[in-house]
Amino acid sequence: MTEPRWVRIGLAVASGGVLVFLYLPLVILAIYAFNPSRLQAWPPTGLTLHWFAEAAANPGLRAAIVNSLIAGAGATGVALVLGTAAALAVQRFTFFGRETISFLFVLPIALPGVVTGIALRTTFQTLDVDFGLATIIVGHATFCIVIAYNNVIARLRRLPRTPEEASADLGADTWTTFRRITLPAMGTALLSGGLLAFALSFDEIIVTNFTAGPGTQTIPMWILAAIQRPAEVPVVNVVAFVLILLSAIPVYLAQRIAGGATGGGRY
């Protein structure tokens, strides 16, 4: 600790302020989830669990959750496979254009989603592809690859090469070495990358809006539609409240796996 006392206190106060700023809207929303009135006026008029029952009984909501889980799992799977392959290639081999690869992968997440969305939509239409879950997965996977790639490459950089070399010296072939040495060493990086990719996919609305067909709804799409129906706005508050609570699980899990000091890994 080299910082003087007043700096530490000042920073603690500033941090507290930022956390209040981050959580105030979420807390207000959580309170609205228990508000009996359909109108979002402050202060709330009472306390009810009525909207939780409505949310549980909503069939459209259930279908949307299933769709979001499928889309998230699909996109995360594709992203992990492709991102890991790319990271291995970049980290383990030298070749012309190596430096450009990470630049290319970062583009889909750095360019605005509305551009990615329209581009994919135009292409699918041109190719006469039917819009549905598959097109959503393609859209999501495209910007999730970089997440897996970054996590894996950060881990590979810190990984000593000696176990792999020892494995090879002992006569193991490439596949065995990968399966027994490299893959286990990357395990936690894959898991935290997978979690973040899944989170991004689960919350993505812009690209989804452009790549979903008329009959397919994900959770954000359901929220957007429900918010347009005055009667369903209180149910949206409930969904938001539950989503925030549930999100604590994967976030905490990722933290535990990463063991706190994560260095260059992503969260």
Partner: peptide
């Protein structure tokens, strides 16, 4: 453009 936007702005 969204009718519910208009409802909430009249209501508020």
């Amino acid at each position: 453009s969204d009718f519910n936007d208009q409802i909430s702005s009249y209501a508020s």
